[in-house]
Design a protein around this nucleic acid. Structure first.
Lengths: 182, 182
DNA sequence: CCCCGTTGTGCAACTTGTTGCATAACGGGG
DNA sequence: CCCCGTTATGCAACAAGTTGCACAACGGGG
């Protein structure tokens, strides 16, 4: 259950409204913990009720009215505690690997196109990450906390490289296969 | 929605009962599409109702009584169609990357231990994969369909290597950090 | 001044996945 | 022959994530 902690992190970096958070989840934070606006609004409600965050007094409560939140001390310590908490890595659940395995049984028809499409998507994502890296983390200018963020970004970068490599390999294997497999 | 297709694949490879499937999901198939016995039983029920699979006649229906399933032709074509279907890659949602990012804001306390623990887990998993590779895919003996399965396994292997690399890098960064970050 | 597109918040219903537990059949040891 | 551990199936309640839509405020153009 990490969504609340993702939100706390985002709000600590900068107090925001729900929609603003949603946008930021479409960019930086969401690169490793995605969430829809629905999840975010619901969770903001819960966090407020739990007194981990509060709405800035300036924003009076009314539907359709912008409402900005900030993290309370209780929220910060909750997050600090969570950082060191133990949680097993989630087992992989990837549809593409599954498709590949299924293809070994019922034939590969249509799979190559999908692999190529993903390859393209991952290349774009990689390009975007590398762009961010260039802009946010110029060589040897990292302050202590920036270096942690940089490591996270490099994780994203290397993950994309992994996919590009695997997809390329998989496509090669598909082509090398007998023309009409089943 | 890939669980039904994971089950169809598994059943095509070998007709099985619910528990047997569960065990196989703890090993091979589950390495890239995990599922609990609950999900599996529920899904078997749905698939049977949809006439994509059927219980083998030998196994009479009774609670606590072993019930073996096989895939019907309709199931096989459903799976074949699914293989080439289009589906965007799911955005990453990884708690460890998130923790790292949170650590940049509230401090890294306890994070290093968790990273080391994961590093160990990933090393074990890698060793297991490499063992499977050695046993199931000896060099230059791959038949056509084995090669696809082999590519899938190599995906798992390289993914583990990615994590090991990243965790090592991240740990290095943590150590290099000022001793009392906040 | 009012209409309409944009910004922003939110409810409700649904799907998927998790957890805890209940229950039935089977087989071997006392 | 009956007790109990193992094998096997399953219900129910919950938690998390997704989708579709409703509705309020705001601001600019006609």
């Amino acid at each position: 259950m990490s969504l609340p902690h993702a939100i706390l992190t985002a709000l600590l970096e900068k107090p925001s409204s729900g929609l603003e958070l949603t946008r930021r989840f479409d960019r930086s934070i969401g690169y490793f913990w995605s969430a829809t606006h629905q999840q975010i609004y619901r969770e903001l409600g819960k966090l407020e009720e739990a007194r981990l965050i509060r709405a800035l007094p300036s924003s009076q409560p009314a539907r359709g009215r912008r409402k900005e939140y900030e993290v309370l001390p209780a929220g910060r310590s909750e997050l600090a505690g969570w950082v060191g908490r133990t949680e097993d890595p989630k087992p992989i659940r990837d549809a593409l690997l599954l498709r590949m395995r299924a293809a070994a049984v019922v034939g590969t028809e249509g799979l190559d196109a999908e692999l190529r499409r993903h390859l393209d998507l991952h290349r774009r994502q990689l390009a975007e990450y590398e762009d961010i890296e260039k802009r946010h983390f110029p060589p040897e200018r990292d302050a202590a906390e920036d270096r942690l963020r940089h490591v996270v970004l490099r994780g994203g970068i290397e993950l994309e490289r992994f996919w590009i490599g695997w997809l390329t390999e998989a496509l090669g294997e598909l082509e090398r296969l007998p023309p009409a497999p089943r």
